[in-house]
């Protein structure tokens, strides 16, 4: 799967890496058991510090998206292992300020749900393939 890292962006590179890998898993572009490049190789290909890639990988590992195998390196985890008990609580926390913004900008509840539905389907339909 392609990762496109934006060097001009305000979003730190390790966050970009993390978000794009999660999106890839959701879309089905990264399948269970697939190997990710080693930390060193990915850092060399992008041209960034090893710590940046390490940080992204350890965040992904903490959230259960990848596994660290001693021999094969970073592997995509299974969907079952990604499930998390208190995710809803975290989601609420993270999405809250965005919804507040949407409300202030005059979006209706319907419009907001339409947007969310569209994004969700872009992943769920991709994953079926």
């Amino acid at each position: 799967m392609f990762l496109a890292i934006d060097f001009q962006s305000d979003i730190p590179i390790y966050i970009q890496l993390k978000q794009q890998i999660i999106a890839g898993i959701a879309r089905g572009a990264l399948k269970e058991g697939e190997e990710l490049p080693s930390v060193r190789q990915l850092a060399q290909d992008i041209g960034i510090n090893l710590h940046t890639v390490n940080k992204a990988y350890s965040l992904l590992k903490d959230d259960g998206f990848i596994l660290m195998d001693r021999r094969k390196g970073a592997l995509i985890n299974s969907r079952e292992n990604m499930a998390e008990e208190d995710f809803k609580f975290r989601l609420r926390e993270e999405i809250n300020p965005l919804i507040a913004q949407a409300f202030c900008k005059g979006m209706t509840e319907e419009e907001l749900q339409l947007e969310i539905g569209e994004i969700y389907r872009s992943y769920s339909q991709g994953a079926e393939r």
């Binding site: 496109a4 890292i5 060097f7 001009q8 697939e34 490049p37 990915l42 290909d45 992008i46």
Partner: peptide, 14 residues
């Protein structure tokens, strides 16, 4: 004001 992108492929070597 244009994005400056570096592209990589996670599966290139595997």
């Amino acid at each position: 004001n244009r994005k400056q992108i570096v592209m990589v492929d996670t599966s290139f070597r595997s």
